[in-house]
Structure formats: structure tokens, C-alpha cells
Design a protein around this nucleic acid. Structure first.
Length: 237
DNA sequence: GTGGCTCACTTTCG
DNA sequence: GCGAAAGTGAGCCA
């Protein structure tokens, strides 16, 4: 009897977030992605609005990066939230994660419900319009749990997302591997499964025609460091 | 000491 | 005008 009640309670919890998620699998050499629409338009609209009110983005020196000897403002806004005490470094600067907000916890739990994975950290990138962007990079830091995918939730304007194999980059790519291009929609979830981030770089290029903002949340699981004080290095997409 | 890697802006080309 | 690609260096790390 008790077991039946437990099962019922568990089903209620699951139902809170359960959406019929029709996953789309995207595969190439060393690349393994799952893409789905996680939130309805109405729910995504509401979440976007709440995040606009709740999220506190980095300012000042934390929002700058040195590239080729010159200091630039990063072409987007960034914030980090997560379990207490988690830290990360960005271009030589260490940041402390803010504690979860109710909206971030809701989205995190929805992602967990849809994927079966748990996350202790989220990097938030806000792209004001199509001029804001991020260059090619990988999220392959050793502090990330190697078996846990990185889950990317998109809210707001749809933006192109481009992946390129590491051997196809540079003046003359060693191998002819076509880039993989996706459009990340409002309310969508993209899972980057291992070993994608070992072999593939990803970027969010400039798109002049995009006039509206986009908020991207990349949920990760950072391994807790038992000794030493090395911070985790975390990027984005 | 050395080599690999990283970041965004500017310029060039199609 | 737009998008893609190349060229640009200081700092960090193994």
C-alpha cells in the first residue's frame, strides 16, 4: 500500500515537468547531439520574461577579455549560477557562481526530467541582438563530468549554431568534414553528448538580421575538486 | 624553455 | 550588405 502511494507521488512529481519530448538525433564523426522542443511557446515566453527580471549579469572587468593584446568588451552578457561554492575562470578571472533562482531551478529540473541527468551549474549568455555572438570554442574543460552531456536551453530569438570538426579548421583543414549547422529555436533544448566537445568546436555567429534578444542557458555538471583550489573553466554556446 | 591553445576584431574576398 | 575565412598576440598551462 505504501509502495503504491510512493509510486503515485513519484508520478505526480514527474508529471509536473513531463512534456512529450520528440528528440531529434544529430550524428557525425565524433559528434552526438539530441535536439528537442522542451517548452511550449507560452511557457518559454514566461520563462524568458522571468529571467529578464531575475538574472544579474557580470559587469566591469568581469565582462572584458584580452585578445591579441587588446582588451575588448565581450560581445554578449554573461552570468553564472550553481550550487554553493562553485567557481570558474574566464580569461584569467575567477568568478563565483550565484545561488540558483526559482526560475533557474525550474528550468534545471525540467532539463533533468527530460534527460535523466542532474546538473550543478549553469552558464547564462544573453545576446542582445544579431550583433552579439561567440567565437569558435569547445567546452572540454577537465573539471566537467566526462559522462554528463552539456544541456543548452534557448529562449528568445532563434539563432544559427555552427559546429566544426577540429580537423576541418584553419587555413587548410586536414580533413574535409562539413560543418554542422542548426537553428536553435525559442524553448528548445540541445544536448551535446560525449565525445562531441572533444572533436567539435561550436560558435554562434553574427546574424545582422536578428533584432531581438536571446538567452542561452548551458547546464553542466562540474566535478567537485577534493584537493587544491583549481577553479573550473567554463565556456558557453 | 617550448609548444599548444585561446579569445574577438578587422580586413579581404565571394 | 552579408557571411565566411584569415590574420592579428599576450597569457596560461603542461
Amino acid at each position: 500500500m505504501q509502495n503504491e502511494e510512493d509510486e503515485e507521488a513519484e508520478l505526480e512529481v514527474l508529471a509536473e515537468f513531463s512534456h512529450p519530448v520528440p528528440w531529434q538525433k544529430i550524428e557525425a564523426q565524433g559528434l552526438d547531439l539530441d535536439y528537442a522542443l522542451l517548452f511550449s511557446k507560452e511557457e518559454a515566453d514566461a520563462l524568458f520574461k522571468q529571467l529578464e527580471e531575475e538574472v544579474m549579469y557580470s559587469t566591469g572587468e568581469e565582462a572584458k577579455v584580452q585578445v591579441f593584446g587588446k582588451l575588448h568588451n565581450i560581445p554578449r552578457r554573461q552570468a553564472t549560477y550553481g550550487d554553493a561554492g562553485l567557481r570558474y575562470t574566464y580569461s584569467g578571472r575567477t568568478h563565483l557562481a550565484c545561488t540558483w533562482t526559482p526560475t533557474l531551478e525550474y528550468i534545471r529540473d525540467a532539463v533533468t526530467n527530460a534527460t535523466g541527468h542532474t546538473f550543478n551549474f549553469v552558464l547564462i549568455n544573453r545576446y542582445r541582438d544579431g550583433e552579439d555572438h561567440i567565437g569558435e570554442h569547445r567546452d572540454d574543460e577537465k573539471e566537467l563530468d566526462p559522462v554528463c552531456p552539456i544541456a543548452s536551453v534557448s529562449l528568445g530569438a532563434a539563432r544559427d549554431f555552427v559546429l566544426r570538426h577540429r580537423d576541418a579548421r584553419g587555413k587548410r583543414g586536414a580533413r574535409r568534414l562539413e560543418p554542422v549547422k542548426l537553428q536553435l529555436a525559442h524553448g528548445s533544448l540541445l544536448l551535446m553528448n560525449p565525445p562531441t566537445n572533444t572533436f567539435w568546436y561550436h560558435s554562434l555567429p553574427v546574424r545582422k538580421k536578428v533584432r531581438l534578444p536571446r538567452i542561452n542557458l548551458t547546464f553542466r555538471r562540474i566535478l567537485l575538486i577534493s584537493r587544491g583550489e583549481e577553479p573550473a573553466n567554463v565556456w558557453s554556446l
